[in-house]
């Protein structure tokens, strides 16, 4: 008898919980990450091609932008492929600009032989150049031009 009551109670609880989920989904206004119905075709974003030739800097300390494609360059914990040409050890042979020597200083200002860990991820500052609309707004103004 006791067991029977327990079974009925748990079945009831399960039904109520499920009903609650359904209710929450209908009233919550869930939107998908896709931002479109499953039967609609998503518009893909425009592809902006790489500009060749070196762009002048817009202000004195602007990180220079990259005048070539960096598609599929590996920059991760293991390897930084930009350094294959741009590290001071290889830049001469490869005819590439060497990293600024500030990139070989650690936080304490110690001169290092290899690029500083703080400068490892090149594309945090240096981006490939393309004539594309800005992804985010920006009100930056250089102190002098």
């Amino acid at each position: 008898m006791k067991l029977h009551v327990l079974a009925v109670a748990s079945a009831l609880a399960a039904t109520l919980t499920f009903a609650g989920f359904v209710g929450a989904q209908q009233s919550g206004g869930v939107t998908s990450l896709r931002n479109a119905g499953i039967d609609e075709t998503n518009a893909i974003e425009d592809v902006y091609r790489q500009d060749e030739g070196r762009e002048p800097r817009n202000y004195r300390q602007q990180p220079p932008i990259v005048p070539h494609s960096i598609e599929q360059y590996q920059i991760d914990l293991r390897t930084n492929q930009c350094l294959t040409c741009h590290d001071w050890t290889t830049a001469g042979d490869r005819g590439a600009p060497t990293l600024s020597m500030t990139h070989y200083l650690d936080r304490q200002g110690t001169q290092l032989d290899t690029v500083a860990g703080t400068r490892w991820f090149c594309n945090q500052c240096h981006v490939p150049q393309a004539d594309a609309p800005a992804l985010v707004g920006n009100t930056f103004k250089p102190s002098s031009n």
Binding site: Q72, Q74, D76, R78, T79, Q81, T84, T90
Partner: peptide
């Protein structure tokens, strides 16, 4: 090097 597979540290 590394056009089809990831590169290990010290690959060069």
């Amino acid at each position: 090097q590394g056009i089809a597979h990831d590169l290990a540290p010290g690959y060069l």
